[in-house]
Design a protein around this nucleic acid. Structure first.
Lengths: 226, 226
DNA sequence: GCGGCGCCTTGACCTGCGTCAACACGCCCG
DNA sequence: CGGGCGTGTTGACGCAGGTCAAGGCGCCGC
């Protein structure tokens, strides 16, 4: 795909022992610098089981990470938005597949460049760790949602999470299809669609184009997230 | 709960750049040394939202980590078995609660002892990272299971995972109740119970006492895990 | 021994979501 | 302009798993 990459690592100041502000601050824990690589709509970035040689950071566009069962059932684990890093594995191989949702630009860095310098740069090592822990927290939120929430609650959580991460104004532009949403939420497209219209009938949202959602009653939506 | 703790960190050799053997090797990535603390059945180790001052490692017994929704719905994120570490957070606070299932002994280490030395010990930093990444992988497996698998598949996966981690012989001694299993698998106790009897009727397992499960047909069980 | 309490199982019934199918609405291309 | 295709919506129906309720079984204390 892409040949050898010169990767520079830009360190930044880091609080030593005490962790910084309580919760998830999504952006820029890991400042990767390297060549930008473009991926087209639905293009594979890497596949499950491939050798995990590269680490990525989204510059523009959106990426889905997912796993597929033998019979074709798909579960999307995460959507990566601009600023998010992904592809850093503990083992030799990628455990998920990753595809661009839309035309996407990624920074690509050789994994060896990271793990190599991590030994000398404690700062970097700590960041890698925090990156992983934050992903873990998001994944555990996902577990809670899939295990114990109703369809309506899942859709509401999804919209609010996306709105927060995309720092949208009143109107949220969904970068993904109903199928992607369904596969993220452990539902079917029909249920997602019905939930949207049901939200619209209740005045929680307004679906102008099917990818443009106006969040009319954020309070009620928050309420559904618990 | 427990007073000030002297914590020693025992380093161990670590391959530098290349990651070791492909997949999850559960044990002893983090060698924590410190005082042992005992917890009784259903005793809380820490609660969601508390200050995350300690890190734990299971010596004996089992711990559940979980989150509870406002209306009481509970989702267990993970069971920690002997050798597993838990409670290491990126933020200031625990994001899950943790309770001992049975009488349990834990090694307790001050978090500051870890994060402090991590800066000087790249080895340790790398281990912290791998620990987090492995938890992440387990959590993503969990997501796949909750999002896309049937009740029977979930129960089968659960049994096989537990059998592997507990290195059981033919008979698996469940350390947890049906309710715990249900809350881990996103099901109800009734469904878990029915699935067990259905497995028994199909000859996959044999339930001698209700916590003792003989795995009669591992092949078939594996088949259900995909 | 016996009553009470946890935990588990089982049955009958219900419902939220999946399944299947039809149709609507762009959008592209001829 | 019209047909085809991809995507989304809607409706009718079915079913996996939830809910509710009853009862069994082991264990403990008296």
């Amino acid at each position: 795909m892409q040949a050898s990459l010169a990767a520079a690592l830009i360190p930044a100041s880091w609080p030593s022992t005490a962790p910084s502000g309580a919760e998830v601050c999504m952006s820029d824990e890991l400042d990767l610098a390297g060549p930008h690589v473009a991926f087209g709509r639905d293009e594979e970035v890497f596949g499950e089981g491939e050798k995990a040689d590269n680490v990525y950071k989204v510059v523009r566009g959106v990426v889905r990470a997912f796993r597929i069962l033998a019979d074709g059932r798909r579960q999307i684990c995460e959507f990566y938005l601009p600023g998010d890093c992904f592809g850093l594995e503990a083992g030799l191989f990628y455990r998920n597949s990753a595809e661009a949702l839309t035309d996407t630009q990624l920074v690509v860095v050789r994994r060896s460049a990271l793990t190599g310098t991590a030994a000398e740069k404690p700062d970097l090592a700590r960041r890698l760790w925090r990156l992983a822990v934050r992903d873990l927290q998001r994944s555990q939120d996902h577990v809670l949602m899939l295990g114990r929430r109703s369809a309506a609650e899942r859709v509401a959580s999804f919209l609010m999470d996306l709105a927060r991460r995309m720092t949208a104004g009143a109107v949220l532009e969904l970068p993904m299809s109903r199928l992607d949403i369904a596969d993220f939420l452990g539902l079917t497209i029909e249920t997602v669609s019905r939930t949207f219209t049901q939200f619209q009938e209740s005045g929680l949202i307004e679906v102008s184009a099917c990818r443009s959602i106006r969040l009319c009653d954020r309070g009620a939506l928050e309420g559904l997230c618990e």
